[in-house]
Design a protein around this nucleic acid. Sequence first.
DNA 1: CCTACCGATCGGTAGG
DNA 2: CCTACCGATCGGTAGG
Lengths: 225, 225
Amino acid sequence: MKLSTLPSAASRPTRPARSKAGPGQARAVPDGGKPQGPGHEDQADRRHEILEIAAELFAERGYRATSIRDIAERAGLLAGSLYYHIRSKEALFVEIHNKALEAAALRIRTALDGLTDPWERLQAACLEMLEIQLNPGSLTLPIMNNLRSVPVNVRDALIQQRDAFETIFRDLVADLPLEADIDKNLYRILLLSLLNSADGWFREGRLARAEIAAQIIRIFRHQKT
Amino acid sequence: MKLSTLPSAASRPTRPARSKAGPGQARAVPDGGKPQGPGHEDQADRRHEILEIAAELFAERGYRATSIRDIAERAGLLAGSLYYHIRSKEALFVEIHNKALEAAALRIRTALDGLTDPWERLQAACLEMLEIQLNPGSLTLPIMNNLRSVPVNVRDALIQQRDAFETIFRDLVADLPLEADIDKNLYRILLLSLLNSADGWFREGRLARAEIAAQIIRIFRHQKT
DNA sequence: CCTACCGATCGGTAGG
DNA sequence: CCTACCGATCGGTAGG
């Protein structure tokens, strides 16, 4: 179990980089620019920062095992203060999840741009999904799985969003010249299941992501004869 | 982390607080009639019952989201009383996991018995894994995934056990006449990833399990030419 | 197997 | 964004 470094009244977490304005110092000002009032921008940035921190923790530990205090600590503030930025833990999770799906959809659509061969398109989508699932650096994190510890009402909303996302793959599979005895529905589900759980089986230092995507297509490729 | 011995027949509560049971009584008979003193068998049965209840809950909600009180309640006793039967929540989880892997290995080996064609063998193993993952009625439950909310020290022990289990599939894949440009390691990992997450994507009322197994083999089957 | 409890931790809030 | 706190719940224990 993690020994909590939860701050007592005496020792507080040190804030990373973003400290409140020090004594005599004005509020954060962009380097050469004009001073800004307590703008929406600052708050929005701070909020986005918190979302990314939370996303990373949720992805690492799951919903239940990530506490509000964990998130607050890494963001450099106290648990109660987090509620200045978020409404609740559940709302935070839902927002992260939806933003991640949206970003993922955009990335994949971009990766597909200009490609016409159906297998080539599928491979590009697979590669992009791998990158998304394995990249710990943004909101596009592996949070689509591991919904077991999420409260049911929250989960239902997420699954609906996810279904919409999967339309991309539904279309990709529909374009494939697959043998007639292959169930395209199951085919898509199996493929997505692989990709979504990538952070569970991927091992750094073995095959590169592009090689994995190529292998996946090699396996899943069946030409209608 | 200490791993409990696997066979449950001789397993006993760790704390022999009760007086010695009488002369070896036969197992408890539901409505049989004769009153019985408390024997090992009763305790072992009760313990096994608790393990199955806990397994089901862990599978449903994950480690973290399943409380000792949840388990106790469903077993019909109070939280504190559970510690007469188990040592800790962690030890309980590890024991369940190991027993499930052992049972799964046995079931698959049995399903393979008599089959010689490598593809037929792989398909039989896939089907058996599906049955195991989707059957909510025993210790062979879908608990091999979803390890994210499990404390790291526990998780490490489980992953080691799982690796041993995967040897079965390593052998099955080794026997396949696959094209040379397919990475057998990745091939096995992808296949297991599908099967292990089956309870995440399976939908009752669509394809039957046997049909799914057949489809999986249809997709994963590539003849060396 | 129960009663009665423990210290820790949880998500969240009031008021500044 | 902090201080100070709430009620609920957690895994676990002592003693019967």
